[in-house]
């Protein structure tokens, strides 16, 4: 506009400015692209929540909330179908708790070994091994569960129940087998997260404790572990999340009939119910399977909220 009459200095300035303008458009576009990318996760979680609710709620309406959640009869293909999932929910809760009870002590001690006891060289061998365990696909665990664990548990079952005619033999496909597979599967998660939090405990704590005359083991169990407790709690909650959501590894070893979760009963988890029945289900049956998915989803959301509010805050306070 005024460029013609303006002195050289001004012209140079305006050219810089106009150059800037074209740059700033690219800048702006890139910024918007990044924002959109960042919101993908938000949109995805929103969409998943909406779809899980939309597909899970209809069955609650048609069959009845109480009948589904507190019913104990699961006969979806019978003439007079029953859709009670109480035992399935209980199995998931009991199975996950047992897997945590078995897996967490072992994982915690292994984490202690890695961070407190092992020499760097030994740790350099053990740690990748644990990480490799995390990467092995769940179907492989399932396969090994069927071929190694199931026969062993069956022998145990035969031994325990040989004089008990009322017990229905499961051939080793029962709650115990599934729990053992789950316990192994949560090991890497719990070991890695606990080890990180143990390593984050300041060295001063250990030195002070040792200087006061505590032995190394006393220091570990009375000082280091309590100091790392929020990290260890996080590890356990992550383990719960992994165990409750695992499907393919336990679908073949859990036995797959709906029963009260007793150790030697053939049982069905929330996840295995979906995997094993989805392919042939239809109508209300399919809707109820989605309700099972919704129940599982609610569990996972609760776990996530615990992780993000209670545990995160605990961790921040300590820092």
């Amino acid at each position: 506009m005024e460029a013609v009459s303006t002195p050289v200095k001004d012209r140079a300035e305006s050219s810089i400015r106009s150059h800037r303008k074209s740059k700033s458009i690219i800048e702006h576009v890139m910024y918007i692209i990044f924002v959109v990318c960042a919101f993908c996760a938000v949109i995805a979680v929103g969409a998943i929540t909406i779809y899980m609710v939309i597909s899970g709620v209809p069955a609650l309406k048609t069959v009845g909330i109480a009948e589904i959640l507190f019913g104990t009869e699961w006969l979806p293909t019978a003439e007079n179908p029953q859709y009670g999932i109480l035992f399935i929910v209980l199995t998931s809760i009991v199975g996950t708790s047992l897997a945590i009870l078995i897996g967490v002590p072992i994982a915690l001690l292994a984490a202690v070994f890695l961070s407190e006891i092992a020499s760097p060289k030994v740790a350099a061998v053990v740690k990748p091994a644990v990480e490799l365990l995390a990467g092995i696909p769940s179907v492989v665990y399932g396969l090994l569960g069927i071929l190694i664990l199931k026969p062993l548990i069956y022998k145990l079952e035969l031994f325990i129940f040989q004089d008990d005619p009322t017990h229905q033999m499961t051939g080793g496909a029962n709650l115990i087998s599934a729990v053992l597979v789950l316990a192994i599967m949560i090991l890497p998660t719990v070991v890695n997260v606990s080890e990180t939090s143990l390593r984050a405990v300041p060295q001063d704590y250990r030195s002070s404790s040792l200087a006061l005359g505590a032995s190394k083991i006393q220091t570990i169990f009375k000082v280091t572990i309590p100091a790392a407790k929020s990290g260890i709690a996080t590890a356990i909650v992550l383990g719960v999340g992994r165990a409750i959501g695992e499907a393919m590894a336990i679908v073949m070893v859990a036995g797959n009939s709906v029963n009260l979760p007793a150790p030697f009963n053939s049982v069905r988890f929330l996840t295995t119910a979906i995997v094993s029945e989805m392919s042939y289900s239809e109508g209300t049956h399919r809707q109820v399977l989605f309700t099972i998915g919704l129940v599982l989803f609610v569990f996972i959301i609760i776990i996530n909220i615990i992780l993000n509010t209670v545990l995160k805050k605990g961790g921040e306070q300590r820092d």
């Binding site: 998943i48 597909s55 695992e246």
Partner: peptide
């Protein structure tokens, strides 16, 4: 939400 996505089990992804 990113952490939630990481925590959602694969079977739920399958259903969704």
């Amino acid at each position: 939400t990113t952490e939630t996505l990481a925590g959602i089990p694969s079977i739920i992804y399958g259903l969704f």
